[in-house]
Nucleic acid binder design. Structure first.
Length: 568
RNA sequence: GCGCCCGUAGCUCAGCCGGAUAGAGCAACGGAUUUCUAAUCCGUAGGUCGGGUGUUCGAGUCACCCCGGGCGCGCCA
């Protein structure tokens, strides 16, 4: 199905051709409703190129343009803009098409790709904390959207399950472990012994050395240490799975760092052999002498002591994803502090001849009310599990106050949908690069651009259908009359224009913003247009409008990984 | 020192490839409810887009410089 935008753009470019003019400018949604629904600046661009009067050019183009079936006669405005206002009957037909379409008008991508999305990536022996929200929620949303657009998505959890921290964990396990505490809360106990060992190591060189020895033994495949490591990984995975279940996030593969262990020597050998890497001060490095910003920032891929580091692992990972998984693209949803690292990795991959589309999708930090990195009162990372539980608890309090009649099962279910949805939406509704201040009050507010506000619009729709005792009417040609109806129907037709845009710059906030505007339009319609009490044909038409609004809201929120309740 | 990111209403934030008089939400103020969930809607008020120079028909958006904040820069991940 074609959107209004693409239909108009197509007709417009035909008109340009007829007028003997090249394609130019762009046809976009109007910046202001005063200017109609769509606008183009083509005449301005052409005017500049050819040194002609933009308004004259606009008239010349209009003489060749036939869009009478879609809009009112286009008008030239301002310096030479051409404005289009959709006809109500065209909106009726288009909305009818969307109504019948499972995909709600959203076309499949022209060329579909196999995309590995690397997101989440928690560390073993550390609980997931607020810092993991953005990567997890953003990555999941991008995966859902890419998938919906027809791409083949492989969601990969690159777990930090290997590294120097295990020397300390194993030392702690052998010397400090409280078995009973381990049974009660495994991860908390592992974290405790890790922290305590860390403190000891900071002051006691002997402990430090002991930890190093444990690490060496683990890396050499020592049975006892490997068993301990396995147990720690398993305990951590339990914690991750609990959080993922709450968040409704799943992975296709979970190839952690350890997965690449036996591939690391090969990576270094290959790079040395090809001359991409060289030995410097005993370490194996890749230099970027031809890139000014990187000239003084080499990338170490093997340490002087022969050990590998995370650059080596990431190179092995690129290799695996491209050669074994046959990825066309790899998206790394990893925080902005690692920009330099990925710049280096991507550059090395390029030098090795890889042509896959590698993207580092960065994001900012979550701040506390004090505008500093969000921490607990005692200065520690806020465990994600606690935070999500609190979200549900707070959501439940609000539900109980607003809707005391709900049964216990409903309360639990709805509180989870609202609480988790609120956390996710708060994150996704903001541009990913900006740091944001975490605020329960704001994210759980029923007013404004929040998940509960959107969910409420959906609930109102469900309520209408419950009351009506009927499912969506079979109507497929709407009868729009009230401005609120026309506005809502136009908005619904835009869903198909918005969704693909999200992937242009990896901005789910565009979709969130659209859904907010849709909910807004729906609420306005809801206030202005009685549904069940109205006469036919308005009643059926409005029911259809409700049905479509509900489906777009549900689908749109689903693309963001957010669920909708039937009641709230 | 070098590099990256950010700076838009009192607060929290939109504003994609430069486009018309810069938009929301919260908070403030004024209205609407015998309801299809008022958990809402309608309205008012609020801005030298950090500062400057430049590019051009046109700059919040692009380039350069400065100010302020954050982050990163050879053997952690």
């Amino acid at each position: 199905m074609e959107t209004f935008q693409s239909l108009l753009a197509k007709k417009f470019s035909q008109a340009l051709a007829k007028a003997g003019l090249p394609n130019a400018g762009e046809l976009t949604p109007a910046t202001d409703s005063r200017f109609g629904d769509y606008q183009t600046n083509a005449a301005l661009v052409l005017g500049k190129q050819r040194g002609e009067n933009p308004r004259d050019l606009a008239e010349k183009i209009l003489a060749q343009l036939d869009v009478g079936d879609l809009c009112e006669p286009p008008v030239v405005a301002g310096a030479g803009f051409i404005n289009f206002t959709l006809r109500a009957d065209a909106v009726e037909r288009k909305a009818g098409e969307v109504l019948r379409d499972e995909r709600l008008g959203v076309a499949q991508a022209k060329s579909t790709r196999r995309i590995v999305i690397d997101f989440g990536s928690p560390n073993v022996a550390k609980p997931m904390h607020v810092g993991h929200i953005r990567s997890t929620v953003l990555g999941d949303a991008l995966a859902r959207i890419a998938q919906f657009l027809g791409h083949e998505v492989i969601r990969d959890n690159h777990i930090g399950d290997w590294g120097t921290q295990f020397g300390m964990v194993i030392y702690g396990w052998k010397n400090l472990l409280d078995r009973q505490a381990l049974q009660r809360n495994p991860l908390a106990e592992i974290v405790r012994i890790y922290k305590e060992t860390n403190q000891r190591a900071a002051t006691d060189p002997q402990v430090r050395e002991a930890c190093r020895q444990e690490l060496v033994k683990l890396q050499a495949g020592d049975k006892e240490n490997t068993d301990i490591w396995n147990e720690c990984v398993a305990f951590s995975m339990q914690d991750f799975d609990h959080v993922y279940k709450l968040l409704d996030v799943h992975y296709d593969i979970q190839c952690g760092e350890s997965f690449y262990n036996d591939r690391l020597p090969g990576v270094v050998e290959r790079l040395l052999k090809s001359g991409t890497a060289e030995i410097s001060e005993g370490a194996v490095c890749v230099f970027f002498r031809d890139i000014p910003e990187l000239a003084d920032k080499p990338c170490i891929i093997r340490k002087r002591d022969g050990g590998f580091n995370y650059a080596t692992t990431d190179l092995a990972t690129v290799d695996y994803r491209i050669n074994d998984l046959r990825a066309d693209a790899i998206w790394y949803v990893v925080g902005a502090p690692q920009i330099l690292h990925f710049r280096q990795i991507f550059e090395i991959a390029r030098r090795e001849g890889y042509t896959a589309d590698l993207r580092h999708i960065t994001f900012g930090s979550i701040l506390g009310e004090d505008r500093k990195l969000m921490k607990t009162r005692s200065g520690e990372n806020v465990p994600l599990r606690d935070l999500l539980d609190e979200a549900c608890r707070r959501a439940r309090n609000i539900i109980e106050e607003k809707n005391p009649d709900l049964g216990e099962d409903d309360r639990i279910d709805i509180a989870e949908k609202i609480g988790i949805g609120a956390v996710k939406y708060f994150d996704l509704s903001q541009y990913r690069m900006t740091d944001y201040v975490f605020s329960w009050e704001k994210m759980l507010s029923l007013q404004g651009n929040t998940a509960p506000y959107l969910q409420n619009a959906y609930v109102r729709i469900r309520s209408i259908f419950r009351k009506a005792g009927e499912s969506a009417s079979k109507i497929d040609r709407l009868a729009l009359d009230d401005p609120a109806e026309i506005n809502l129907a136009k908005r619904l037709c835009q869903f198909a224009e918005i969704v693909p845009q999200v992937l242009n710059n990896f901005r789910p906030n565009i979709l969130a913003n659209y859904l907010f505007e849709l909910a807004n339009s729906f609420h306005t319609f809801y206030e202005a247009c009685p549904v069940l009490k109205s006469e036919e044909p308005a009643r059926s038409s409005r029911l259809a409008l409700c049905d479509l609004s509900g489906r777009v809201l549900e689908r749109g929120l689903d693309l963001l990984g957010i669920k909708v309740p039937e009641k709230m």
